[in-house]
Design a protein around this nucleic acid. Structure first.
Lengths: 245, 245
DNA sequence: CCGAAATGTCTATTAATATAGACAACCATA
DNA sequence: TATGGTTGTCTATATTAATAGACATTTCGG
């Protein structure tokens, strides 16, 4: 549970700098959203396996950035979350813009599961929380190069065979078609940019400090009924998002 | 001219680490290609505004990576360079294949000619030997560094204006598009590696004994009709070819 | 109001980083 | 072979990074 975050010594990068970077990542990752606060210094010191003063140096750097604010007796509050803002117009044709790329890419099914919808997913799909969903983890590659990894949710009652279809056809578009849905449209898209976490670094073969663009999107059938809730992380230095106004 | 490289202090990143990173960048950028050596330690120390010992720490780190090798009395030799990864697939295109590896790619038209097809060219293009062809000699660079030179043949009756288009657009893909062929695919690729000849040494700015990878390829339009026969010589120490089947 | 929990501040010590200078060892070449 | 230029090694010193411990200060809840 208290997975020890890893910091390396004698790499030419000070421990407090590594720790500051990791905490910044956790903040923008939403790890501390429940409390809105950074864990106590003594806890962080234990997690990272360093002295409390080293953690304090890291927190001082983040406070200097304006990211956090320490209050004596209470704790260290998160002031703002670091997000690179991506301008996007009202009439975004995001689905087509990425659809072209998606058709050229190969989608590899990493894992699948059937589980009840979490609140956010349920809201996106317009169903009651707890309703059964199919979850698919995909990785997309273009010319053998990882471009994105994504987590996708589909209503289980309508698309029970989604996993098999995606695995067989290597494409969500084709899987939808095989399931009797030849066309669908993007109804909402949210973009954020942040640093890649450890899993994404490994999956997308990125170097530490790399940026991913996270797209949270809902697709719906022609009648406007949501059919897919997707969260896709693109290797930011590998894709070019064309915003059409 | 001796633009001082900038290193910052008290950032939590040791000076020797910053300097090592900058030198690695210069190596892969080709800044030292003329000599194949790193500048003397005393010169680097002056450029970065640090002590010679600090530079030595940086070079020691790069030697540990196997990137350079110091020889007492002579200097510090560059052992290998990070290579551009070049995917070879059905949809191989020079600039797109390099993707974000290079900020800027350039195709320069060296020479052009109209001549009857030799036997090998005719076989590749599926035409009778002696049929008129357009021949273009190109050199391609990424971020100002020569990457490959190529000899390209096109059927003269179908693409009479190929030379002008390539010269104007700086890209074969774009030239094809301008000539009414928006898409094409790679139908065959053969690779050999050999020593560079005198012309290639000069053209690609290689040192004697350098190796080139020669790719002989045929591209065809969507109907399978050959449109291009190309023989490309890559500077072997600058590229990594990814074969995707 | 008291005490637990959290941050703030101080001193002291050790290790890593950076600077400075001197000189040895080695290589290429005139 | 003599010389200039380069890397290798050594000593010494100062600064920064990291650890360790003690205690003060503040906040919050019982």
């Amino acid at each position: 549970m208290n997975a020890k975050k890893v910091v390396e010594r004698q790499t030419g990068v000070a421990l407090w700098r590594q720790i500051a970077d990791l905490i910044r990542l956790s903040i923008s990752n939403g790890d501390y959203d429940q409390t809105g606060m950074i864990p106590p210094e003594i806890v962080l010191a234990s997690q990272f396996g360093v002295n409390r003063h080293t953690v304090r140096s890291a927190l001082a750097a983040l406070a200097e950035e304006g990211l956090v604010q320490a209050i004596q007796g209470r704790g260290t509050l998160i002031q703002r979350k670091e997000r690179l803002s991506f301008p996007i117009s009202r009439r975004t044709r995001f689905a087509q813009g990425l659809g072209d790329q998606a058709r050229e890419t190969e989608a590899k099914l990493l894992s699948q599961a059937a589980l009840p919808a979490a609140v956010e997913v349920a809201a996106g799909l317009g169903i009651a929380p707890g309703t059964n969903c199919i979850m698919l983890d995909l990785m997309r590659s273009a010319d053998g190069r990882p471009v994105s990894c994504s987590t996708n949710f589909f209503p289980a009652d309508r698309f029970p065979r989604m996993a098999e279809q995606v695995e067989r056809l290597g494409s969500i578009t084709k899987a939808f078609a095989a399931e009797g849905l030849p066309d669908y449209v993007r109804v909402s898209t949210e973009l954020v940019a942040r640093h890649a976490d450890a899993d994404e670094l490994a999956l997308l073969r990125l170097s530490p400090g790399a940026i991913v663009i996270e797209a949270t999107a809902v697709n719906a059938d022609p009648d406007g009924v949501p059919v897919q809730f997707a969260r896709t992380r693109f290797a930011a230095d590998r894709v070019k998002l064309k915003i059409e106004t």
